[in-house]
């Protein structure tokens, strides 16, 4: 295939992966809807307390066959979507004969893929977490649509400054780190929602609805923490690798360029989150909020800083 054909194949795969993710979202909705009749069992209502030891206990226990079947379909569609999504990047890389993360379109597309894969890994290893699929895929589809609408850039060669093996090192780890923090942030958001729900249940209300299908607060909190623990060294490495590259490319390893500044801010916020998780008085909600702020900082760094402020990192390729 010629580079042009590959590039347009990549663009088509992008639409296909959005379509597959959307179908997966529908299937996740169906899973929640059909699994619902059994949610009012005592077991699930009691899930707020000690489920820390076994996430399975909180979900799935009372799910009927139809709900489970929809769940498997949803996961399958998500996995297919992720395959198409990966192929978007591969065909782009082949079309341009370089790593497919040279501009914001490619970078954000890859980041979302990492988030989906991180979710899939969790969902396969911990079936209790399959239920958060809708809450992961909804932002994923939204992000993909926004990326397609506003960040799309034609396949093309890289500017001189980006032609370095540090692109592979620094940008790949940035993408992985961001994707993981994305999942972590979502888990914390769901945690905050779920904690409120469990308080209302404890107070004798019966809020019901979708929230009752979420995994227990303790499980969500643990997912958020574990992913952040995984993401933090990766992000630390990203910042260090960026500094090493900057030393070669821009003549100084750190210069408080806006992108560098926000990478630093994110790092400090995640350090605060990890501390908060182990400090009395900060555990639980306050710590989760810190993680949500961290996600906000990461998203701000990817969007606003790339598109609005001018700095040395202005390779976004968005006009």
């Amino acid at each position: 295939m010629t580079p042009d054909q590959l590039a347009s194949l990549s663009d088509n795969l992008f639409s296909i992966s959005i379509a597959l993710y959307s179908l997966a979202m529908v299937a996740f909705c169906a899973q929640l809807a059909f699994g619902r009749r059994t949610t009012r069992t005592r077991e699930l209502v009691g899930a707020g307390g000690p489920p820390a030891a076994s996430p399975e206990a909180t979900t799935g226990a009372g799910e009927d066959g139809r709900g489970r079947r929809w769940g498997v379909i949803a996961l399958g569609l998500t996995a297919l979507g992720a395959l198409a999504h990966g192929a978007v990047l591969i065909t782009r890389g082949l079309a341009t004969d370089r790593l497919p993360w040279g501009n914001m379109y490619e970078f954000s597309t890859a980041t979302v893929l990492v988030a989906v894969v991180a979710y899939l890994v969790f969902a396969v290893r911990t079936p209790g977490l399959r239920h958060i699929g809708l809450f992961v895929l909804a932002p994923v589809v939204l992000a993909m649509v926004l990326i397609g609408l506003f960040l799309y850039a034609e396949a093309g060669p890289l500017v001189a400054a980006l032609r370095s093996y540090w692109l592979a090192i620094h940008v790949s780890t940035a993408i992985i780190g961001f994707g993981i923090f994305f999942v972590s942030g979502i888990a914390s958001v769901l945690y905050l929602v779920r904690v409120r729900y469990e308080e209302r249940v404890a107070a004798g209300e019966e809020p019901g609805g979708l929230l009752s299908r979420l995994p227990g607060a303790a499980v969500l909190d643990r997912v958020a923490h574990r992913t952040a623990v995984f993401g933090f060294p990766i992000w630390t490495f990203t910042v260090i690798a960026g500094a090493i590259w900057a030393e070669a490319a821009w003549g100084r390893f750190w210069g408080w360029d806006p992108k560098e500044t926000w990478a630093f801010i994110a790092w400090v916020v995640y350090a605060a989150y990890l501390h908060a998780r182990t400090t009395a008085g900060w555990r639980g909600r306050p710590a989760a909020w810190v993680n949500v702020v961290g996600l906000g900082v990461m998203i701000f760094n990817l969007t606003f800083v790339n598109m609005v402020s001018t700095g040395l990192h202005s390779y976004a390729g968005v006009s």
Binding site: T261, V268, V269
Partner: peptide, 16 residues
Amino acid sequence: AIVLLFLLALAAVPGS
């Protein structure tokens, strides 16, 4: 330490 970390993050914001 947590509060100071937050302050550090906040203090860097106007710089960008």
